[in-house]
Every structure is written in structure tokens, then in C-alpha cells.
């Protein structure tokens, strides 16, 4: 395989170790099954189809990223998966049981910081355990273990606002995981962070994921992030939101930052870009008709 020349590498050709890994993943149980999911928003008598006929299976311990152009409904999809919004059609099954409404079997990490500001870091992580009816002492014990796992046990008694954005998101991940969900849903969790912190958080997330039995569905608009993290990438297209393609990422694990310059990485990225930014797919957006006025008209031109 010739490294350095992206054009000769086909993103669809998996290296043998990756192919074996994919095969193993597909042998595992399906934890999250989405069947013919559709979502129609009705607003002032007009109906907008946000999602149409979405099907996907996420296997145990698989890491799936969802990407797509803005307006493709990827956030709507994850909110429906979390039960925060109702699907218009289709159904969602977790461990082959249909789900309705939010529940502790699907944890969620939001883009916004959503730690409870009046609870200490430790109490935040305890929240899901308390809601499950576990005693305070036991909740605290487990929460401290989670904080150790994410390396923030020193901040157990701090309040969220005393932590940086990256640390808050780490606590949010621990809080979601402490409730022992089957699937962890992440809705652009790192997009509010600066570039450096974001890369560190990605590595950190993969460390956690490697150590524990958790299935992750991760929404992002950052293609590098999607390729770097995912086993498979679900590409949505907009208007209406449909599955365009499912890509198996041809990178071996454990992932390292160096892989981002590899030919496979670049080929995958080039393909994703072509899918997401095709001019034909470009739909009228909010920038249309807002040309910058000719500023020179109001200046004195002395020539």
C-alpha cells in the first residue's frame, strides 16, 4: 500500500486487521436497532421532513459516528434516540426491546454544559445512581470510582463552574456512564471546546471506551473527529435526512494521532467531503441573498 499518495488508496478496502475486527464486531449482539425511523416537523401548517426511513444497527461496544451537512437532522436523530423527542414513524430497540421516552439505558452527553451547577462534581456523577434508587453511600462509592477513571477525583468536591469546559465534559461523560447505560449518545460533545482540548478529549474518550463495555453513538460535524473515533460512520444527507452511506473506517486500533496523516485517513476524508459538500446537494441556505453591499460606493475614491 503506497503511503502518501491518497488517490491510489480506496477507502473501502479495509486492511486485514481492521476487516477482522469489523467481522468480530458484526458477530456481536445488536444493542441499538433503529427501524424505519422518520420525523416530520409540522410548523404553521407546513410539514418538513427532517428524517426519513433511517435504519441502523449498532453492535455491542461499537463506536458509530454520525456526520452530515448542517440541517440533515443528525441532532434530531440523537435526540429521538435519547427519547427527548418523539419519532413520527418507525421504532427504536435497545437489546431488542422497543423504547419510548428517555431512560437510563441510553445515557447522553450534550453539546452544552449540563452539569447541575448546585451539585458538586461527585454529586453530579451520583445523580443517575440516586435516580435508580441506589443508596447515598453506594452511589458515592461508585461515583468516586468513576471520577478516578476519568482522573478528576481531586475535584470531587468542586462545583462545576470551577472547572474548565473540557473537565466539565469529562464529568458529564462520567455522569452518563455512572448510570450504566447500554448506549452512550453524544451530541457534538466537544464542539464547544478549543482545538487542543478537543484532541485531548478525543483521546481520553477512546481510553475510557477501551476500558469499559459501552456502545457509543457520536454526532459530530468534524470529519477528522469522526474518522479518528469511529468504527463505522453513518453519513446523512439533508432534505430530507436520509442515510447516504455507511462507511467502515479503514484504520486499525488503538488509534494514534499519526494515523491522521495516513493515506487511508485522507482517502476516507476526501470521500466524506465529497459526500457532504457536493454542489448539487447544496440547498438554499441562510447566506443566499445577503451579498455584502458594495462598500466602495460610499468611499471617496481618489485615483
Amino acid at each position: 500500500m503506497s503511503a502518501g499518495n491518497g488517490t491510489t488508496v480506496d477507502y473501502r478496502v479495509l486492511p486485514s486487521d481492521v476487516a477482522e475486527r469489523m467481522a468480530r464486531i458484526k458477530d456481536r449482539d445488536v444493542v441499538l436497532r433503529v427501524e424505519n425511523l422518520g420525523k416530520i416537523f409540522a410548523q404553521r401548517g407546513r410539514e418538513t421532513v427532517a428524517l426519513e426511513d433511517i435504519n441502523m444497527n449498532v453492535h455491542r461496544r461499537e463506536f458509530v459516528c454520525v456526520v452530515g451537512p448542517s440541517g440533515c437532522g443528525k441532532s434530531t436523530l440523537v435526540r429521538i434516540l435519547a427519547g427527548l423527542e418523539q419519532a413520527s414513524s418507525g421504532r427504536i430497540l435497545v437489546d431488542d426491546k422497543p423504547v419510548d421516552g428517555p431512560g437510563p439505558d441510553r445515557g447522553m452527553v450534550f453539546q452544552k454544559y449540563t452539569l447541575f451547577p448546585w451539585r458538586t462534581v461527585c454529586q453530579n456523577v451520583m445523580f443517575g445512581l440516586e435516580m435508580a434508587g441506589i443508596s447515598k453511600d453506594e452511589s458515592r462509592r461508585q461515583a468516586m470510582q468513576w471520577l478516578q477513571a476519568i482522573g478528576l477525583e481531586r475535584f470531587a468536591e468542586s462545583l462545576p463552574h470551577q472547572l474548565s469546559g473540557g473537565m466539565q465534559q469529562r464529568v458529564a461523560i462520567a455522569r452518563a456512564l455512572a448510570a450504566q447505560p447500554r448506549v452512550l449518545l453524544m451530541d457534538e460533545p466537544f464542539s464547544a471546546l478549543d482545538a487542543q482540548t478537543r484532541v485531548r478529549m478525543q483521546t481520553h474518550l477512546m481510553e475510557i471506551w477501551r476500558k469499559i463495555d459501552i456502545t457509543i453513538v457520536f454526532i459530530t460535524h468534524d470529519l477528522d473527529e469522526a474518522i479518528y473515533l469511529a468504527d463505522r460512520i453513518l453519513v446523512l444527507k439533508a432534505h430530507p435526512g436520509r442515510v447516504e452511506e455507511v462507511i467502515e473506517v479503514p484504520l486499525s486500533r488503538p488509534r494514534r494521532a499519526e494515523q491522521m496523516t495516513s493515506a487511508e485517513f485522507q482517502a476516507t476524508k476526501a470521500h466524506l467531503e465529497s459526500l457532504i459538500h457536493t454542489p448539487a446537494e447544496e440547498t438554499p441556505d441562510e447566506f443566499e441573498g445577503t451579498e455584502v453591499p458594495l462598500l466602495t460606493l460610499v468611499t471617496d475614491v481618489v485615483e
Binding site: L84, M108, T114, R119, F127, M131, A132, A176
Partner: peptide, 23 residues
Amino acid sequence: GLMEAARTLGARGKRLMFSVVVP
């Protein structure tokens, strides 16, 4: 956002009220 986070963590009804809304 806090309400939604609490709901995904399994809080509902009275517990949601007294653990999230009131504080």
C-alpha cells in the same frame, strides 16, 4: 438542558421535581 440531562439519567416525576426543578 438541565431538565433533559436529568431525564436521560432516569429522573422523572416527583424525583425530577425535587432533584432538579426545585434546587
